[in-house]
Design a protein around this nucleic acid. Structure first.
Lengths: 203, 203
DNA sequence: GCCGAGGTAGACAGATCTGTCTATTAGTGT
DNA sequence: ACACTAATAGACAGATCTGTCTACCTCGGC
């Protein structure tokens, strides 16, 4: 936006497909393809073709397919956590209300075109325990549950661990059956059940 | 058990690896391997090697890999449904108690060595919507929910559909997170949550 | 003694997938 | 003008996977 001797990266960025666009294009393409077709269902060649990148460039940024998968899962983690937090916040300042409100994120997800369940659960189904991908999934699930648990603590739940567990069970159930069923009532029922469980636990 | 001129099949069956043993051996081997490593993670060659069968024999009984996968899912369906029904029955004649009791099947499943979640959810994760395998999964989930719904009707639940949905959500959540987490408290918490939901719905 | 059914063993074709490597092109700072 | 960096295009090796096909073997029934 100015004429100072900006770095080359800056200059290029303001003009055309610039320096770091390649990595991002790969990741964006992988995000869509992995989610839609499963990790094993998408080959490197297809990602390369659809992201318009050369093979050497791909392997420069992601030395192995698993590295891309891990980056994909990091991205899913960021996106989904953000949606969960946003839905909770939208329910107002009361932590008990937030515990219920987070189910709105499930509802939005299930309505989304091409919804195919939880990317982490799907990834875990394709990769055995102990692999980096499976471990990454475990970490994600633990993070979400820890966040829910804190909300439960803030809401003065009698047993925050149990409440967090039951709510994440409901959430995972909604996500998992969404990959199969996608019944429109699932998220609504899940939210109602969550409401009941929260009310009982906080009373 | 007698000396009448029995059919050759009968005779053979009482002696050694007889006629239809080959098909069964293949299916049993596939059952273990598919569940443990995922469908895509197990090749035909491995199934052949571990079931001690010739390739031609394999393709005689299962013209394509998908045929074997479908047979595998049928078997899983039979086994899991049986466990669910047994757990429910064990809770006594009261349908409301049975709705809670079925969660004991989840508990047993999670404790089992090598537990890796719901075979159907895992299968669906590896196969896109519209494929026979995905469709088979959908059918299974619908069947289970229909059975639970009937139990809810028998229990005079105010809204049997909603109760059935919320309970299967909890169940699927337990199954799905079991493929990742396997936290020992999950089944216990799921059962407690189910108890709360059933009590509220039947009151 | 012989035949036929069902099984075994394994080579083979063809597709697909991951990852490597070479040769070339375009833009940037000096 | 020149060197450097980043990217492109695509051939290639090596592994793996599905499914076909040939050749042989074994055993019960007639």
């Amino acid at each position: 936006m100015n004429a100072t001797p900006a770095t080359s990266a800056r200059r290029a960025a303001s003009v055309a497909p610039p320096v770091r666009a390649a990595r991002e294009r790969i990741l964006d393409t992988a995000f869509g393809l992995f989610y839609a077709h499963g990790i094993r269902g998408v080959g490197i060649d297809r990602i390369i073709a659809e992201s318009g990148v050369a093979k050497a460039t791909f392997y420069k940024y992601f030395p192995a397919k698993d590295d891309l998968v891990l980056a994909y899962l990091d991205k899913v983690d960021a996106v989904w956590s953000e949606q969960l937090h946003a839905a909770a916040s939208a329910a107002g300042p009361d932590p008990a209300a937030q515990l219920v409100g987070m189910f709105d994120a499930l509802d939005s997800a299930c309505r989304r075109e091409g919804y195919r369940g939880c990317a982490f659960i799907n990834a875990a189904a394709e990769n055995e325990a102990g692999t980096p991908i499976h471990t990454r999934t475990l970490r994600h699930k633990n993070q979400v549950r820890a966040w829910v648990r804190q909300l439960a603590v803030d809401a003065n739940a009698a047993d925050p661990d149990a409440l967090a567990r039951s709510l994440t069970l409901l959430l995972d159930g909604g996500l998992a059956s969404g990959s199969v069923d996608a019944g429109a009532d699932a998220p609504v029922v899940a939210k109602a059940a969550a409401q009941a469980l929260v009310s009982a636990a906080v009373a």
